[in-house]
Design a protein around this nucleic acid. Structure first.
Length: 755
DNA sequence: TTCCCGTCGTTTTTT
DNA sequence: ACGACGGGAA
């Protein structure tokens, strides 16, 4: 098969590009993965050694998909496809000593991080109630994303009038970082910033890696933060064969430091670059694309760009309006069931997205009630269970004996009478003597004021840990079971026999199973490192399996990069979409990010798109009336009232608001150099030409008119609202009490006379 | 040292 | 409404 088969001219140009920097501006559904994988295959066909090609993604899922698709085109090619974080782990395992890390460093999860901040707070004598560890951690993480070191943070603090929280954060940051290094540990952000340091402070190493990875590809470039940007730049200096793909309209990670500007800066950074916009959408129907396009058109900071497709019109998107979240969930379940029962869709074709994870609950309940098979994208949940984390901490401690977080997690779990008091004495003494906690255990007798019992038990614990090793066990699975034996781990719950106890035992067994399957998979390259890395770097989205025949439930963030024939987006309400945090203090950028998020959600849909709005929603346990999302005024949509009669009360939130016209010309000229701008405008003009070709029809409906709908049968027009594009016609159908609004321009209604 | 109970805060999104 | 955390009792 030719690599160029079935491609548009733009796609073909991207696939054929070999040397030099390339920016692919890929709108949703534009066949980006297809183009990127074929381009990789083409590089190899042109004689470039696969080992010189490095593709970087954000999620494991994206990496797996890309790797698989490259393998299909080029079996046994072994192109390196990795996430940013894995890439960094790999570099740091090899060269981390330069930044003070031993190759067996541990990766802390958020729970460990929080605990560490708590410890640091207490060491520094700050009140953890007033200075919430979460918030401090958030600030530290933000600083790290911007490559700000503790010293820089402190210096900045001296120059400005920082608030109290900043001062505390500065102090905690410094000590936190020091503690991490002492424990030979890193947090997620460290993986990136240590790599940045590594590359910037070692010119020869940087040059070596630059030469080794001559062809670098970066997916979702609009979501890179400063650290990631620097890593990519460092690998593309002497050999700037850098290909980045992205779409500014799909930038949804600004809140965690992503800089949408990185994609605009590409031209500045690589003046000899080529830009290829992929604007044709192969995924969605016209009518879905139209609403998404109108929505995103309301963003001010944006490149002028239109979405075009040659796909059929399809069914118009609908807004399901429900009295409360319970009925909302039922309505969604019913809607999906209806679609599946037509035989046109399978459960696995359907997905439900929401802004916050909390919204999945009512849906899960409804799906259980109605016996609809579903899976929720929450992979981390398993690794967050206490018993699982404990066992993993044992592994971490075996692998990295200086891992303090792991030590403190397991030293008294299962309970062995080594409580807080004894632990504190141990830690204090170990710090004074400059020993690791395990070393201190062995010399427990020397610790002042330590109870007799603890003086005996600490060394016993240390001896047990000393006897555990991967070498002795042979495999991770075996190592785990010998940990289970030695610690009598399962005895904690075997006596109980309650349901929760059973769950815990089952979780432990599942982890052992995961370890054994890792052992098999890794074959002769079994390492504790490999297994721990695998579990440390999983994310929610990695757990979803498209082959199980189930409806998928996930956040809109997690949905990026996926597509489904049927998509439902829950909770189009102010405070939810857009999220209330983006509404505070008139933060326009955040509001635009919320709009992009909804845009991402909508553009996942191939054929059917449903939005929902519940008129009541309980938040923090209190049930409150909701306000419709302001975004609903930005595109026309059919409204379906999912409760029987309520519609007749002219509730203000039920009325079709005038859709506000999109602002004339998005202003982005300052961010966007002329060349790129003109190319994009051409595409936009083209798209405009297409839409302008359509003639605006007079609606031709009247109240009382009988109409026929291909799906819902015969009904009566009961209301008309709005003008022009947004003219809607409300029909009450004879069958099943259904009342529905149609955008009259698209309504598949056939007048059959006046009743 | 552990366990139980009451109080408090908590919610964005993720590698 | 729910879970985490802290304080007090066993």
């Amino acid at each position: 098969m030719s690599l160029l088969e079935g491609l548009t001219p733009a796609q073909r140009a991207a696939v054929e590009h070999v040397d030099g920097p390339l920016l692919i501006l890929a709108g949703p559904g534009s066949g980006k993965t297809r183009v990127v994988t074929r381009r990789i295959a083409n590089l190899v066909q042109q004689g470039i050694p696969p080992r010189q090609i490095l593709a970087i993604t954000f999620t494991n899922r994206a990496a797996d998909e890309m790797r698989e698709r490259v393998e299909q085109l080029l079996p046994e090619s072994h192109v390196w496809v990795s996430t940013f974080h894995r890439l960094c782990v790999r570099l740091l395992r090899q060269y981390g000593n330069v930044v003070g890390l031993d190759s067996n460093f541990s990766i802390l999860d958020t729970g460990d991080q929080k605990l560490l901040v708590r410890q640091v707070l207490s060491e520094l004598d700050f009140d953890p109630v007033h200075f919430a560890p979460d918030k401090i951690l958030w600030r530290i993480s933000n600083a790290k994303n911007d490559c700000i070191t503790p010293e820089m943070y402190q210096r900045k603090l001296e120059e400005t009038i920082g608030d109290h929280m900043q001062m505390v954060t500065g102090k905690v940051f410094e000590r936190y970082q020091q503690r991490l290094l002492e424990a030979n540990s890193v947090d997620f952000d460290d993986l990136l910033i240590h790599t940045v340091t590594l590359l910037s402070e070692n010119p020869e190493l940087r040059a070596t890696l630059d030469a080794r990875h001559r062809y670098v590809l970066v997916d979702e470039y609009q979501d890179t933060n400063l650290a990631q940007y620097k890593i990519v730049a460092a690998l593309s200096q002497q050999h700037p064969n850098l290909c980045v793909t992205g779409d500014p309209d799909q930038s949804i990670y600004g809140w965690r430091g992503a800089r949408i500007g990185n994609i605009f800066a590409f031209r500045r950074d690589y003046p000899e670059h080529v830009v290829i916009p992929l604007e044709q959408n192969f995924r969605s129907t016209q009518s879905i694309l139209q609403v998404a396009d109108q929505l995103i058109g309301h963003n001010q900071k944006r490149m002028a760009k239109r979405l075009v497709t040659e796909n059929p019109d399809g069914d118009p998107p609908q807004l399901l309006i429900c009295p409360d979240s319970h009925q909302e969930a039922d309505a969604v379940a019913r809607q999906l069931r209806d679609l599946v029962e037509t035989g046109e869709y399978r459960w696995s074709d359907c997905a439900v997205f929401y802004r916050v994870n909390a919204l999945s609950r009512s849906l899960e309940a409804a799906f259980l009630r109605q016996r609809i098979p579903f899976q929720v994208a929450t992979g981390v949940a398993f690794y967050e269970r206490a018993e699982v984390k404990d066992l993993l901490a044992y592994l971490r401690l075996v692998h990295n004996p200086s891992d303090r977080s792991a030590f403190l997690r397991v030293v008294n779990s299962p309970l062995r009478g080594l409580g807080k008091t004894s632990q504190n004495r141990l830690v204090e003494w170990a710090d004074r003597e400059g020993l690791t906690l395990l070393e201190a255990c062995e010399r427990a007798k020397e610790i002042p004021k330590l109870s007799k019992a603890a003086q005996v038990k600490f060394p016993v614990f240390a001896r047990m840990m000393g006897e555990l090793s991967l070498a002795a066990s042979g495999s991770v699975g075996e190592l785990l079971s010998s940990i289970l034996d030695r610690t009598r781990f399962l005895q904690q719950w075997e006596a109980g026999g309650s349901e929760q106890d059973g769950d815990k035992i089952a979780n432990v067994e599942e982890l052992v199973g995961a370890a054994r399957s890792y052992d098999e998979h890794a074959a002769d390259e079994i390492s504790l490192e490999g297994f721990l890395e695998q579990v440390a770097l999983v994310s929610d989205v990695d757990s979803i399996d498209r082959t199980t025949g189930e409806v998928t439930l996930m956040t809109m963030h997690a949905a990026k990069g996926l597509e489904f024939p049927v998509v439902v987006i829950l909770g189009l309400e102010e405070g939810l979409i857009p999220h209330e945090r983006s509404l505070r203090e008139q933060n326009r950028d955040e509001l635009e990010e919320e709009r992009r998020l909804l845009f991402v959600g909508m553009t996942r849909a191939k054929r059917r798109l449903f939005l929902t709005q519940s008129r009541m929603r309980s938040i923090h346990g209190r049930t409150m009336p909701t306000i419709a999302s302001p975004f609903l005024n930005e595109f026309p949509i059919e409204r379906v009232h999912c409760d029987g009669d309520e519609w007749e009360f002219a509730q203000p939130w039920l009325e079709q608001a005038e859709a506000s016209p999109p602002p004339q010309e998005p202003q982005l000229a300052t961010l966007l150099p002329g060349d790129l701008m003109s190319k994009l405008k051409t595409g936009a003009d083209l798209a405009n030409g297409v839409t302008q070709g359509k003639v605006e029809l007079q609606s031709g409906y009247a109240i009382g008119m009988q109409v026929r709908h291909p799906r819902y049968g015969i009904g009566t027009v009961v209301n008309l609202q709005g003008m022009g594009l947004n003219r809607t016609v409300t029909v009450r159908f004879v069958d099943g009490d259904r009342v529905q609004d149609f955008v009259s321009k698209h309504a598949p209604l056939q007048p059959i006379g006046v009743g």
